[in-house]
Design a protein around this nucleic acid. Structure first.
Lengths: 183, 183
DNA sequence: CGGTATCGATACTAGTCGTAGCGAAACCCG
DNA sequence: CGGGTTTCGCTACGACTAGTATCGATACCG
């Protein structure tokens, strides 16, 4: 049996939540580039070396932060249209949270020329939603990936161009457009 | 009258095209972050200082490069649906060109916390297409901006997540989805 | 109390953006 | 042809950042 007993030595202090919060806060205030690991560590009240003991790079830290910030997709709709609408609104709310869009753009930029980071991004962040949505919406995986591209891409492009989240009426239009694709 | 005569002194050498080409090439090979201004200048065969005499920052250079790479929108369709399809295919072709998507992501990242750069991005890159499409498609400006978010955002998200351009069948699906919105 | 692994702090390397200063080169005009 | 003006290439530089190395101190287990 694999022993589930704790390994010897000083245990890791449970500061992941503080680090994630400090990361989003710093990225929100300064942007991805100027959100240095030094500043994030200071904002979290820990040493920079502690961060590098847990995440191999700034990009991996921010990706983990995004995974934590998005969390599981709450789906309790009565039909596919309701679930789709809930998923879009979920994405819109998350991307509107301070720092999330900036973190996303930064990770995309870093992921170019860093296949490992892109792999993490695709596997850790996108795949869970792809799986759930494939099941709930009853669509092919290709179709679900297309939907994710449309939803997240549209919301991020609006944030990148204007610096403001998409207004609710446009989110409604996005939902309607995709719901028509279900029929 | 404003005299159109050439100002005194040594004229600027016409190397903008070489610089743009070198920028895209370098960003394609190394990604936005590692595409340093030094390397771009070397690839273009000029000095780094010459670049900084013409563009105030790396972000402004890459934005100008994108404006040049996209160019005017060729619209010769017989109706709105054809023009919309042509516009989407135009965007898909441009974003699939080597380096363009990486440059886009990098500029978005830099534009956060640099309102001047975001202004350039919105004015120089998005506004021309917004104007043309507003006229050709006969939609409100808000609606056209929504369309641009969907098209460019979707295509960029696919490139950011997979590193590969969107396949043609998905581009077709994108066109059909938006054409339905015209009715 | 001894063993082990983490923590904080500091220092360091390698690399990056953007600027300054200089002599040389290119163009215009008289 | 020569003087005036501006850009060019080159080198050097200051400020900042990602990521690594090191070391004493600390927390937990048996």
């Amino acid at each position: 049996m694999a022993s589930p007993s704790r390994p010897p030595g000083r245990p890791r202090s449970s500061v992941d939540a503080e680090v994630f919060a400090a990361t989003l806060r710093t990225v929100h205030e300064l942007g991805y580039t100027r959100a240095t690991v030094d500043r994030i560590a200071a904002a979290a009240g820990i040493a920079k070396t502690t961060i590098y003991r847990r995440w191999p790079s700034k990009g991996a830290l921010v990706t983990a932060c995004l995974v934590d910030a998005f969390g599981p997709l709450p789906l309790a709709g009565r039909d596919r249209e309701e679930d789709l609408a809930a998923a879009v609104r979920f994405g819109a709310r998350r991307i509107a949270e301070p720092g999330v869009a900036a973190a996303f753009a930064g990770v995309f930029t870093d992921a170019i020329g860093d296949p490992g980071l892109r792999e993490i991004l695709s596997t850790q962040l996108q795949d869970p939603y792809r799986q759930v949505l494939t099941e709930v919406l009853g669509l092919s995986e290709q179709r679900v990936l297309f939907f994710i591209d449309v939803v997240i891409g549209t919301l991020l492009h609006r944030m990148g161009m204007t610096g403001e989240p998409m207004v609710e009426s446009d989110v409604d239009a996005l939902i309607q457009m995709l719901q028509r694709e279900l029929r």
